[in-house]
Structures are given as structure tokens and as C-alpha cells.
Simulated scan of single mutants.
Amino acid sequence: MLSNMVRGMVFLASVTALAGCVDHANGPMLTPVNTLDPPLNPPGIAHNICVADGNVMYNEARKQYEARAQMSRYAIDPANEEAQARAAARRQYVTCISSQGYRAVYDQ
């Protein structure tokens, strides 16, 4: 019983140590919009929720671009498709993060 407990503690310690290795260099800094009414979720959770929404929007925008190209019988321009999908994902992320009560500040 004690060995299972020790194994669990070692596992949690290693997961905690490896979590610090994740690179967030290009991620936005999330600042609360209103200090009197704090956001519901912490910044890390809100960021993960909104990144997932952005990824879904990215895939959906690519599908819609391909459907429009197929309906109009034009060739698919990969650069234009990528630009439109990235723009849609960014709009979705910004919309989601602002609905969470944050403003995304990018270090440029």
C-alpha cells in the first residue's frame, strides 16, 4: 500500500516538473478586462478553452474554403486557404478570450 502511494507521489512530482518545460514563449499574455469583476476562469484554463475553439474554427474554415472552391470550380490556392483559416481561428480565439473576461496582449 505504501509503495503504491510512493509511486503516485513520484508520478505527480515528475508530471509537475515536466509541466514547467512547456514552451509558452509565443503565447499571449492575458490581462483581465475589469478588475472589479474578475473573470470566471483562471488565465491558463481560459487559454486552453479558447485554443480548442480556435482549432475547431481553423478546421471548419478549411472545409468551407474547399467546399466553396469545389462549388465554383476554381482551383484551391493553398496559401489563400491557409491565410483565411488562420484568420478565422484568430478571430475565434480573440472572441472567446474576450467572452472569458480577458484581453490578449501579444509581445511583438
Results as ranks from 00 to 15, higher is better:
residue 26 N to R: 13
residue 71 M to R: 10
residue 18 L to I: 15
residue 30 L to M: 01
residue 14 S to E: 03
residue 74 Y to M: 15
residue 80 N to E: 12
residue 72 S to F: 08
residue 23 D to N: 12
residue 93 Y to L: 04
residue 61 A to C: 05
residue 99 S to D: 15
residue 101 G to F: 07
residue 71 M to Y: 02
residue 1 M to L: 09
residue 56 V to F: 11
residue 74 Y to I: 07
residue 16 T to Y: 13
residue 65 Y to T: 08
residue 4 N to I: 04
residue 49 I to Y: 07
residue 67 A to C: 06
residue 102 Y to S: 03
residue 37 D to N: 10
residue 17 A to C: 14
residue 27 G to Q: 09
residue 70 Q to A: 14
residue 24 H to V: 00
residue 45 I to Y: 11
residue 102 Y to F: 14
residue 36 L to N: 09
residue 95 T to S: 14
residue 37 D to G: 01
residue 39 P to C: 13
residue 67 A to E: 15
residue 106 Y to W: 13
residue 11 F to Q: 08
residue 67 A to F: 10
residue 10 V to L: 14
residue 17 A to V: 01
residue 11 F to K: 06
residue 11 F to L: 14
residue 106 Y to N: 06
residue 22 V to M: 07
residue 23 D to K: 07
residue 39 P to G: 11
residue 66 E to R: 05
residue 26 N to A: 06
residue 62 R to Q: 10
residue 41 N to E: 09
residue 49 I to Q: 08
residue 6 V to L: 13
residue 3 S to H: 06
residue 62 R to K: 15
residue 54 G to D: 00
residue 7 R to D: 04
residue 8 G to T: 02
residue 87 A to G: 12
residue 81 E to A: 12
residue 89 A to K: 03
residue 63 K to D: 14
residue 20 G to K: 06
residue 88 A to E: 06
residue 95 T to F: 07
residue 20 G to L: 07
residue 84 Q to M: 08
residue 104 A to F: 07
residue 19 A to D: 02
residue 65 Y to D: 01
residue 16 T to G: 15
residue 30 L to N: 00
residue 72 S to D: 02
residue 59 N to V: 09
residue 50 C to D: 03
residue 33 V to S: 09
residue 52 A to F: 08
residue 89 A to H: 02
residue 63 K to W: 05
residue 94 V to T: 08
residue 93 Y to F: 15
residue 94 V to Y: 09
residue 100 Q to L: 02
residue 36 L to S: 13
residue 9 M to L: 10
residue 30 L to P: 00
residue 33 V to C: 12
residue 44 G to H: 03
residue 102 Y to G: 01
residue 29 M to W: 00
residue 11 F to I: 09
residue 22 V to D: 01
residue 31 T to E: 13
residue 60 E to C: 01
residue 103 R to F: 01
residue 63 K to Y: 08
residue 54 G to Y: 04
residue 50 C to Q: 01
residue 61 A to V: 05
residue 75 A to I: 06
residue 27 G to W: 03
residue 108 Q to W: 08
residue 89 A to F: 02
residue 85 A to S: 04
residue 37 D to L: 12
residue 16 T to H: 12
residue 19 A to E: 05
residue 77 D to E: 06
residue 39 P to F: 12
residue 5 M to I: 11
residue 93 Y to M: 06
residue 53 D to N: 10
residue 85 A to V: 05
residue 88 A to Y: 01
residue 26 N to D: 11
residue 80 N to Y: 05
residue 96 C to R: 02
residue 38 P to N: 10
residue 29 M to Q: 11
residue 12 L to I: 14
residue 81 E to R: 15
residue 101 G to V: 09
residue 15 V to P: 02
residue 35 T to E: 14
residue 97 I to C: 02
residue 19 A to S: 15
residue 38 P to V: 10
residue 90 R to G: 02
residue 98 S to T: 14
residue 47 H to S: 03
residue 46 A to S: 05
residue 63 K to H: 07
residue 16 T to E: 03
residue 12 L to D: 03
residue 85 A to C: 05
residue 32 P to S: 11
residue 83 A to N: 13
residue 60 E to P: 00
residue 56 V to A: 11
residue 18 L to M: 11
